[in-house]
């Protein structure tokens, strides 16, 4: 069947099989491989995308049920041009929050959403908000420092 979506601001249509997830469609039909496929059961968050403005695991969204949805992936967070970074992306680079990088896209999406919806979140709130995104490399320290850096820059320099 054909499913129509708005992905990163662009309308698009994809042929999907009934059992396919939104993650599969993004990665294999639309060529957006930023969202990753680490567990396929909603336990790692590496496929996090925004679906109609909420952070969800794309692996748990039946593509056929996403008809008409607005999807933002990590590729669509910053402006269109290569090299232009979202505040959170820049903070991850600067704080050394990236190691192997497999969890990074999902964490960036979750952290950017947190920054937008709860810009003043304290340490425990940030941790809880990111507790659905597993990272095996960093032990989370640098990730938390990156989020704090983005928060302070957002307050100083206006909205992200």
């Amino acid at each position: 069947m054909i499913v129509t979506l708005e992905v990163n601001g662009e309308p698009c249509a994809a042929e999907v099989a009934g059992f396919e997830s939104l993650l599969w469609v993004l990665r294999e039909r639309l060529g957006l491989t930023g969202a990753k496929d680490a567990c396929l059961q909603g336990e790692c968050g590496s496929c996090s995308v925004l679906l109609d403005g909420e952070v969800v695991c794309a692996c748990l969204v039946l593509a056929a049920d996403a008809e008409g949805a607005r999807v933002t992936t990590v590729e669509g967070l910053a402006g269109g041009s290569e090299g232009e970074l979202h505040l959170v992306q820049q903070a991850f680079v600067d704080a050394g929050a990236v190691q192997c990088g497999f969890c990074t896209p999902g964490l960036i999406v979750a952290a950017a959403h947190l920054l937008e919806t709860r810009p003043g979140a304290g340490d425990a709130e940030v941790r809880e908000a990111l507790s659905g995104n597993l990272c095996r490399c960093t032990g989370y320290g640098a990730i938390l420092r990156a989020v704090a850096r983005a928060q302070s820059q957002a307050t100083q320099g206006g909205a992200p």
Binding site: E54, V55, V56, C57, A110, S131, G132
Partner: peptide
């Protein structure tokens, strides 16, 4: 229940 992503949906 689950993670924030799970609780969203």
């Amino acid at each position: 229940v689950g993670s924030p992503q799970i609780r969203a949906v």
